[in-house]
Computed example of a mutant assay.
Amino acid sequence: MVNFELDKLKHTTSGNFFLMAGPCAIEGEEIAMRIAEKIVTLTDQLEIPFIFKGSYRKANRSKGDSFTGIGDEKALKILEKVGKTFGVPTVTDIHESAEAAMAAAYVDVLQIPAFLCRQTDLLIAAAKTGKVVNVKKGQFLSAGSMKFAVEKIYEAGNKRVVLTDRGNTFGYQDLIVDYRGLPEMQSFGVPVVMDVTHSLQQPNQSSGVTGGKPQLIETIAKAAIAVGADGLFIETHPDPAHAKSDGANMLHLDLLEQLLVKLIKIRKAVS
C-alpha cells in the first residue's frame, strides 16, 4: 500500500485535479494490471495524481444473477498488487461494517457507496481503520446534508475524508448533476470529487441492467473542472461492451488521454 497525504490531492503541485479511475469491478489480474499500467502512464505524463479504483465485490445489483465478483480475497490481493507494482494508492468500496478492516489491509482508500452514505456504523467502522474515507453523496440527498457524514467520520477520530458527487435522482430512470453542490461540499473543508461515469447511469431499467449515457462523459467532466472540482472519478475499460459491471456508462480506455488533455486546459484556464 502507498502512504499518501490527503492534502496533496487538494493542493497538487502540478495544479491539476486528481483522478480516481479504473474498472467498475475487479474482473481478473491481467485486465486490472493492463488498465492500471495504461492510466499510470498517462497520469505520470500529464502530472495528474492518480488513485486506482476497482470494486472487489459488487453488492448493489438489480438482478440476482448479475456479476458480483471473483472472490473477495482474490480481488483484494489484485488491488494490493496494483498498488505495489505501480506505486499508486488504491480505492475500493465496502458495504458492511465488518468489511472495513478486511479491505483496509489491502487498499489505501475505503469508499462508501452512495446508497449507504447515511449508515452510521459503516462510516464509523471505515473511519476507525485510519484510512482515507471517500463517501459518495446519496442520489437522494442534498449536498448540504453530507456535512453529517463528514461529522460522523471526524467524531470517530479520522480527519481524512473525501466527498464524491454522483448525481441526483431525477424521476425513476435518470440522474441529473447539480453543480452547485460541489462548492457547497467543499465548504466543509474536504476535497470534493465528481463521479463522472456514475452520474450518467440510467438506473432501474426494465431489463434489470442499468443503462447509461457515456457520450456525455466529456460534458460532465468539463463542467466539473470548470466549477472547481478537486478530483474526478471515472470508470474505464478497454472493452466496455463486454465489461462485467457498469459497461453501459464506462469510458473506453482509449479515449481517456484525449479527455484528460482537454480537462487540463480547462483547469489552467479557470485557475
Rank of each mutant, 00 (worst) to 15 (best):
E5Q: 07
L6W: 05
K8S: 14
T13M: 10
P23S: 10
E27C: 06
I31P: 01
A32P: 00
K38Q: 05
T41L: 06
T41D: 15
T43N: 11
E47P: 02
P49R: 09
F52H: 11
Y56M: 12
K58P: 06
K58D: 15
A59R: 07
R61D: 10
S62A: 11
D65H: 13
S66T: 15
G69W: 04
D72P: 04
E73H: 13
T85C: 01
V88I: 14
T90K: 08
T92M: 11
T92Y: 07
A98C: 04
A101P: 00
A103D: 07
A105C: 08
Y106G: 02
F115W: 05
L116W: 06
D121V: 03
D121Q: 10
G130N: 13
G130I: 10
L141D: 05
F148D: 05
Y154W: 00
E155F: 01
K159P: 14
V161G: 02
V162Q: 03
V162P: 02
N168G: 04
N168S: 15
T169E: 10
D178C: 02
L182Q: 00
Q186R: 06
T197A: 01
S199H: 11
N204E: 14
G208Y: 13
K213N: 15
E218R: 15
A221T: 01
A223G: 00
I225T: 03
A226P: 10
A229H: 08
L232C: 12
I234G: 13
D239C: 06
A241H: 04
D246K: 04
N249A: 12
N249E: 02
M250N: 09
L253P: 02
L256Y: 06
L263C: 10
I266D: 08
A269E: 13
S271N: 14
